[in-house]
Each structure stands twice: as structure tokens, then as C-alpha cells.
């Protein structure tokens, strides 16, 4: 019998992805740490490096999503039900992008309706969703990112809005069925698919989390909303 048939291919792929992700994380970190050194001497290269680092970050998110989907399929992914102090969670996400935003001259505002808000969710998972959205938004926005949170009908809403050209129509459509992937659109939407899966895993009674994409009626910028019960 051929021994290769017995290999758990998915597990091996997952292990490889895991290693690649960690190496890539180190590369991104190293590139990132070079930016402040070049900031004054050669601002142009600093901007390019920053973009390089963001791109590495995008790949990294992709790998994290692959791993996450593997664990989802194996039933090994279930959210931790933590009471999170929202201000700190948002702060953690924002802090990761401080230097990118500065170098790329993007203004980032945070508007939290209730600064004392404590809400139940898996902090690592939500951090992942928001970081992924912001990484993409930085690429497509013109000059601004607006993060805001509020409570609506028993849901915590975390919204990220930019002033770019907005989501293409097919992407807005895409999130609706939430179970199908469209490889034709150029973007696989893997990140969004994963985000909506994670959101759905957050459940209270019969209320489930979800995500919603739209474009701002006035500015046309993209709006991402995460709803957590």
C-alpha cells in the first residue's frame, strides 16, 4: 500500500501555513521597524516600505483565515466568551496601525458612544476581523478612516468607514448569502467569508452575529459593520 495515501493532507497544509504565517509575521515586523529609521532621511522609501509591510499584513491575514477555516472545519474553532472592555480592544487594533497611518497620512478617528462599554465576545477573533478590514481600508481610502461603535437593538455595532470609492456592487451582494464563495470576482472574499463565519459563531439565545457591507450615500466611501449580539 502507498503510505502517502494515509497522510492527513489538510493537517500538513495547515502546519505549513502556520509556519509560513509566523515567518511572514517576522518579515513584516522587521520591515515595519525599518520605517522610523528612514522616516526623516528618505520619506519616499519609508512610504514604500510601509506599503510593503501592509501588503505582508494582508498576506498574513489570508493565512490566518486559511488556518481559521481549517480549524472551523475540524470543529476546533469556538469563540471564547469573554467580557471585553471595548475601549481597550479598539485601542489595541488602532495601535497596530499607528505608524502606517502616520506614514501614509491617513486620519483615523474613533468614536465610542459609551466609553465604559463592556461586551461579550472573543477578543482575538474580533481583533482579527477588524485588523483585516482596516488593512484593506487603508489601501482603498483617500484620507480618512472612521471607527465608531454603538449599541443597536441589543447588538454591539462596530463600524469602519472610509472615504474611498466604496465596495464594488458584487462584494456588497456577496455577503448576503454568506455560504457561497465566488472566485470569479478577482477577490475571493475569503476574509469577508471568514469574518461572517466568526460573527455567526457569536450567539446569544437565537441572536447571531453578522457582518454588513454598504457604501456611504453621501461620500460613497465603504462602510463595514460588525454586529455582535
Amino acid at each position: 500500500m502507498n503510505d502517502h495515501n494515509n497522510l492527513d493532507l489538510a493537517l500538513i497544509m495547515a502546519s505549513i501555513v502556520h509556519d509560513v504565517k509566523n515567518s511572514l509575521g517576522l518579515i513584516q515586523h522587521q520591515v515595519e521597524s525599518m520605517v522610523p529609521q528612514l522616516h526623516d532621511k528618505n520619506p519616499e522609501i519609508a512610504v514604500q516600505l510601509q506599503q510593503l509591510s501592509l501588503e505582508a499584513g494582508r498576506i498574513n491575514h489570508g493565512l490566518i483565515h486559511m488556518l481559521g477555516l481549517y480549524r472551523l472545519k475540524e470543529g476546533m474553532l469556538s469563540p471564547c466568551d469573554d467580557e471585553c472592555f471595548l475601549m481597550d480592544v479598539l485601542d489595541d487594533v488602532r495601535t497596530k496601525f499607528i505608524s502606517s497611518l502616520e506614514v501614509l497620512k491617513i486620519e483615523f478617528t474613533v468614536d465610542q458612544h459609551d466609553p465604559d462599554m463592556i461586551w461579550n465576545f472573543d477578543q482575538t477573533m474580533v481583533d482579527g476581523i477588524l485588523s483585516n478590514v482596516i488593512t484593506n481600508a487603508i489601501r482603498y481610502t483617500k484620507s480618512k478612516l472612521m471607527l465608531s461603535t454603538y449599541e443597536e437593538n441589543g447588538y454591539l455595532v462596530i463600524q469602519i468607514k472610509d472615504d474611498g470609492d466604496g465596495y464594488p456592487e458584487n462584494m456588497i451582494q456577496y455577503v448576503q448569502p454568506q455560504t457561497q464563495m465566488n472566485y470569479q470576482t478577482g477577490s475571493t472574499g475569503l476574509g469577508l467569508y471568514f469574518s461572517s463565519q466568526i460573527a455567526q459563531m457569536h450567539q446569544v439565545g437565537d441572536k447571531r452575529g453578522y457582518i454588513e457591507l454598504s457604501n456611504d450615500k453621501q461620500t460613497g466611501g465603504a462602510i463595514f459593520r460588525l454586529f455582535l449580539p
Binding site: 515586523h29 515595519e32 499607528i98
Partner: peptide, 16 residues
Amino acid sequence: LAKPFAFDTLKQRIVR
């Protein structure tokens, strides 16, 4: 702290 972390993250956490 998730690895690798940037300077800004460490600074903000230290204060916290």
C-alpha cells in the same frame, strides 16, 4: 501579547 508586536503596541500596553 501576540508575536510579533510593534513598538506602539508595547508602549500602549505598558501604560495600561
